[in-house]
Write a protein that binds this DNA or RNA. Structure first.
Lengths: 301, 301
DNA sequence: GCAAAAGTGTTAAACGTACACCCATGC
DNA sequence: GCATGGGTGTACGTTTAACACTTTTGC
């Protein structure tokens, strides 16, 4: 709190101090919010029997200005003086997608000194989940430069190194984003260093093709968070419409976890989180399936 | 990214644009880091047989300046232009406690507009864990105004309200901090609103006695995080010395979780996370206990 | 009929919980 | 001896995983 040292605060009341306080005299970083907006979409299916496959989608915006002009970036912007971080994030979301009232949580705040070439920018990243059907204005169809990209996340390499005083694990993540002919790619390295009793985790973008700033690592981090939270929270339901079949729900779990699940076990596991309805989805080529609805439960029940 | 609109970026190269970019022209919030430094201490025990009880401790600093002069606050300070958030947090830690190389993780970034009466301040909170024995300079004994406070966290009230379009859960948390004669207290309200498909969580300080700013809610949030992460991560070991008995480890779990555990079950649960040594703790009034050591494991094994 | 998905039942293995019981120690 | 913690065994219930099997549909 050395910022205050030129005053002699002990001779003032708190009111006097605050009246005299000049906030404008120190250089300070800019603060932005960046938004990871995820949704799930169906892919076209030729076989009339098969269910359409689902894909995880992320919204990106093409930059019309320097730096990284022409590249794709997370929607976001500067935080105003009269809005909280969350308000700023919701405002951005509203202007990009015209949706409010969707699920959103703070992800992580990125504060490396050189992460923005313009000036020092600290970015607070949020993650939002929408079910695709409830998007009125489907970003990507309207005038804006926003597009939904199909997102793939895979571990390309895993290395474990044993050192005298600990261990280092290294993971190279491939992040791929596709929208029609546009294909973006990045490699993100996650390093976990165990030295004595400390664990240090570093993330760095090794390679980024068409993705602006350090956004590739924010994306990779977001997927990691999504993956881990889907295991112990209700988070997946925010990607679902109000009525859904258990197979659809299972598909969403599968694309986020990146592995196949056994239907029988899955149904039993999520049985407590859903309520049956009396409606059925008209199926094609197979038995119709019952529609379910999310049964919300608080952390403290 | 409207901040850039007065340029015509399309006529410049990226280099020209960056050279012309003036970062100083917009009003921006200040950014600070605040640190939750936790440790565990033994309490004196009169009964020669009994193990000393452990308490969770948090480091606070008495404010010598306005605002909140005389009250107790989390150690922290402004983020410099040439340091990352994490570097700023480690610098603060080093100056307050003279310890580096300790476990630290980012907690949450607090950005309400009026959280600091001086000016708009966004604070990125970090949580650090130390084992008390490895603190060379024991804060609280030296000249600085830093003291370790015994921390108690309890749910004082829990309300569930059913509304037409959803549910509201409300929790009132009592946070108590004690150091010798100094006794600080706060009530923090956590509200969880389920409206349609959105979940909104709000936290507010209802009452704060002797705790500066909104730090009471940061403290409450930190304990919540500690509680949940101790269940599925190795985090507790950062509060332990290199050698410890399983009972000591269990005590640490118990004070953080706020409930008693069965020794037999606990031993089996953590068996994979520790390595046996051949050393024993000389016990008093009971069988000597074997000392264990942490066996680090990465997330990707 | 047939392929695909919807949905149920059965078994074995893994895990968690509770409790009983013995061991070792210092006073 | 005895209170206290250290440490193991055992029994029971729950959860999970794997797989087999039946149902229902559109073409």
């Amino acid at each position: 709190m050395t910022e205050l040292s030129k005053y002699d605060p002990h001779d003032m009341t708190e009111e006097q101090f605050l009246a005299a306080y000049d906030a404008s005299q120190y250089e300070r970083p800019s603060v932005t919010v960046d938004m990871l907006l995820f949704t799930v979409m169906d892919q076209l299916q030729h076989n009339y029997r098969k269910l359409p496959e689902k894909t995880l989608q992320l919204l990106l915006i093409q930059r019309g200005e320097h730096p990284f002009i022409g590249q794709w970036a997370l929607p976001g912007g500067f935080v105003g003086m009269d809005e909280s971080l969350e308000e700023a994030a919701r405002r951005e979301l509203k202007t990009e997608t015209n949706v409010d009232q969707i699920y959103m949580e703070q992800l992580y705040t990125w504060g490396d000194v050189a992460r923005d070439p313009r000036t020092r920018v600290i970015s607070c990243a949020y993650m939002a989940l929408v079910d695709h059907d409830s998007l009125e204005v489907q970003a990507g169809d309207d005038a804006a430069d926003a597009r939904w990209f199909e997102l793939d996340y895979s571990v390309a390499q895993e290395t474990r190194t044993n050192q005298p005083e600990g261990c280092t694990w290294e993971q190279v993540i491939d992040v791929t984003l596709k929208h029609k002919d546009i294909r973006l790619m990045a490699k993100v390295k996650v390093t976990e260093i165990l030295k004595g009793k400390t664990i240090e985790i570093k993330r760095e973008v090794m390679e980024s093709q068409g993705i602006a700033f350090d956004h590739a690592k924010i994306i990779a981090y977001g997927i990691e968070r999504l993956r881990s939270k889907i295991e112990y929270t209700d988070i997946a339901f925010h990607l679902m419409p109000s009525l859904f079949t258990l197979s659809e729900l299972q598909q969403v779990y599968e694309i986020i976890l990146g592995k196949e699940l056994l239907a029988a076990a899955f149904r039993r596991k999520i049985a407590d989180l859903v309520d049956e309805t009396n409606e059925y989805r008209k199926a094609a080529g197979h038995r119709p399936s019952k529609l379910y609805r999310f049964k919300p439960r608080s952390r403290f029940t």
